[in-house]
Design a protein around this nucleic acid. Sequence first.
DNA 1: ACCTGAACACCGTTCAAGT
DNA 2: ACCTGAACACCGTTCAAGT
Lengths: 232, 232
Amino acid sequence: MARPDASGPRARLNRPSVLAAAVALADEVGVEGLSMRRLAQELGVVPMALYKHVRNKDELLDGMVEFLIGEIGDVGETEAAEDWKGRARTRVLAAREVLMRHPWARRLFETRSTKTGAVLDYMNSFAGILLSGGLSAELTHHAMHAIGGRMWGFTQELFEDEPSTPPQGPEAAAMMQEMAQRFPHIAAIASMEHDDSVVGRGCDDQFEFEFALDLILDGIERRHLSGWRSTP
Amino acid sequence: MARPDASGPRARLNRPSVLAAAVALADEVGVEGLSMRRLAQELGVVPMALYKHVRNKDELLDGMVEFLIGEIGDVGETEAAEDWKGRARTRVLAAREVLMRHPWARRLFETRSTKTGAVLDYMNSFAGILLSGGLSAELTHHAMHAIGGRMWGFTQELFEDEPSTPPQGPEAAAMMQEMAQRFPHIAAIASMEHDDSVVGRGCDDQFEFEFALDLILDGIERRHLSGWRSTP
DNA sequence: ACCTGAACACCGTTCAAGT
DNA sequence: ACCTGAACACCGTTCAAGT
């Protein structure tokens, strides 16, 4: 008798292998396509087998976040020469580079609410960069909030980005003109759409990311240098 | 025979009433608790009845976003006296006030990718504020990206906020100490947790929001006043 | 200790039918 | 035009059982 669905490896399961498979599956089908049943099938195993290595789906998702943070690894032991701003900047851009390879990860990070050890480790070392630069605990606290998800390299784009292929054809021009009439200010702005348009949805634009990151880091530096405190 | 589940009104359905009911239901049970079947039950109707007024669940969610934007309404026709920065600021804070009443809305905005007319209207008028302040189209474009979701009053908090009730009891102190040892920089920062702690999850802190918003608006103003352009 | 099988209470959605 | 009923192909998860 043929096993109709066992396409994955037959080896014994364990937590890391389950998480790795989950990440790989999400790379293929996205987070919304990831189900316990589908993952089990991918591993050539019955759905309930997963529950020995992961308490439930929520814990699986938390584990995936942990796994991704592990992929970031210990960047920047060589950053020591830079000042805090430069070190924060390179750290963030390194995280971004990793997480952009898993475009679905942003939504996952946004949804999870628990802070696993790996998450706290990352945040702790990030806070350390700012504190070591002489920023007050209070300013560092606010800075962490202000940077928010950008710490992991994510932007706060809502309504991700335009359709990858702008409408083309006969009535496309008419539609564009109607759009321009109804939303003139957007039309004024939308002129240049980004160079690397081929990169696909989920990957947001590097230039916009760095622009906003520098806006925030510069602002924090300015507050720092002028001895900012909450009750002036 | 009693109708076991018809608790809602018996009136004829239409798109607005369906959307309003969906928003009300989400207020009760959150977005993840909102299902077509549950919504139908709430309306005293069979699930398939909804599909006459909404193409599918995705369109229902888009409709809810539209509904919420409608709640924001036309704020700030009286903002005319302020400069662009003040007008942008009050606009954002007004949107925030509305959307904080629906804490689940942030996740909804984050998830949706289509730009309905209502969304574009809001963005268009926001871009108009910046352009009318004399900002170049290019700077306005980048500013919109940098502000991102904060335009609607959402922060980019990942891993929302700490458990509402910090652990208390016998071994809580020991755990806190262990935490402080493993994550010293976080401990240094975490001293003050926010004043309005009772407000509940989903509502992020007003102070942090305004701090970050001003960081960004100040940065944009600075770029504007110094005649910023992308190729200096 | 690890995996299985059947079952339960859910989903979104299609299709053909009622009024 | 609007609502219904039954059905399909999915979910996550429990519980008792196998090895």
